[in-house]
Amino acid sequence: MERAFWLRAPGECELRPVALPAPGPDDVVVRTLYSGVSRGTESLVFRGGVPASQHAVMRAPFQEGEFPGPVKYGYLNVGVVEQGPLTGRTVFCLYPHQTRYVVPASAVTPVPDDVPPARAILAGTVETAVNAVWDAAPHVGDRIAVVGAGMVGASVARVLAGIPAAHVQLVDVDESKATLAAALGVEFATPAAAGGDLDLVVHASATDAGLARSLELLAREGTVVELSWYGDRRVSVPLGEWFHSRRLTLRSSQVGTVAPARGTRKGYAERLAVALELLADPAYDALVTSECRFDDLPVALPRLISDEPSALCLRVMYDST
């Protein structure tokens, strides 16, 4: 009998026994090595903040149950294939927190040999960053800010840091994130100290203040790419002031849809492959700020969400690791 992490109701979580289905000829049985908690999205689910209109949109690929709960939710899982095609390979899957699981072989992606399994849990987040950068379409030498140094914002900053001659600053109200910025190879600034006259801002703070500051930082004809997911919260956007006179653009980026510039020839699999290739870079280790054992997850997750506002990814370790 295996076990899975469930949100029983908003704010209440537990481990439940799971009986695995018999695998078919095209299925794989995966033993989980690590899973990751994406603090932003999973905290929204934890507090029951997914609006009814978005229940279908927010549904994870292998989610069980319905919002607001009971629900088995999660999408950062790395394990080893014990049966079926790819036996013996370490793979990434968009699967919740569970000790073992059975999925179609097409649902898993082999982890490259040069990417440690413990780091590979970030593949889903870095894949979001890849799509955001495709949406943003930065140019060589651009002046860029990423506002919000959470998991997604930090991942975007690292991807953008690879653009030749680009000047990238990571902006956050938490001054301790300067250490994170240094590890990612970008500059750090508080919102008040951030340099303006920018070509591009990627907003990922999920706050009204962060979005307003993102617009303020733009040069004429500049663009804000909005990555934040606000759930059931309404957002105030300052479309007066400089918005029209500077001819600014506010554009959404949505992880479920490949950027139009790439969509005709690249899908999810290609995007995830790029993310896993990027994860050979040890700089991404800075995104994992805490660890716990799977048995302790029902205690660790509420603590992470309520008591550690600067936390990024919580890495969950299983008995096999």
Rank of each mutant, 00 (worst) to 15 (best):
M1W: 11
R8M: 12
P10W: 10
E14G: 01
L15N: 08
A19M: 14
P25Y: 05
V29R: 12
V29C: 09
T32A: 07
E42Y: 13
S53M: 05
H55W: 13
A60Y: 14
G65W: 09
F67R: 06
P68F: 07
V71Y: 06
L76F: 07
N77G: 02
V81F: 06
R89K: 14
R89S: 14
V91M: 07
C93R: 05
H97F: 03
V102G: 04
V103G: 07
V111R: 09
P112Y: 09
D114A: 12
A118M: 03
T125E: 04
V130M: 08
P138E: 03
D142I: 00
V146S: 10
V147F: 07
G148P: 00
G150W: 04
M151H: 10
G153E: 08
A154M: 12
A157I: 05
L160Y: 05
H167A: 00
A182S: 15
P191F: 10
G196I: 01
V202I: 15
T207I: 03
A209N: 06
A212I: 07
S214Q: 04
S214C: 05
L217D: 00
L217S: 02
L218G: 11
A219E: 12
E221S: 06
L227Q: 00
L227F: 03
S228M: 09
R233S: 13
R233T: 11
V237W: 08
G240Y: 11
W242N: 11
F243A: 08
H244K: 12
R246N: 06
R251W: 06
V255E: 13
G256L: 12
P260S: 00
D281P: 14
P282Q: 08
V288I: 15
V299W: 01
P302A: 09
I305H: 13
L312V: 02
C313F: 04
M317Q: 02
T321Y: 00
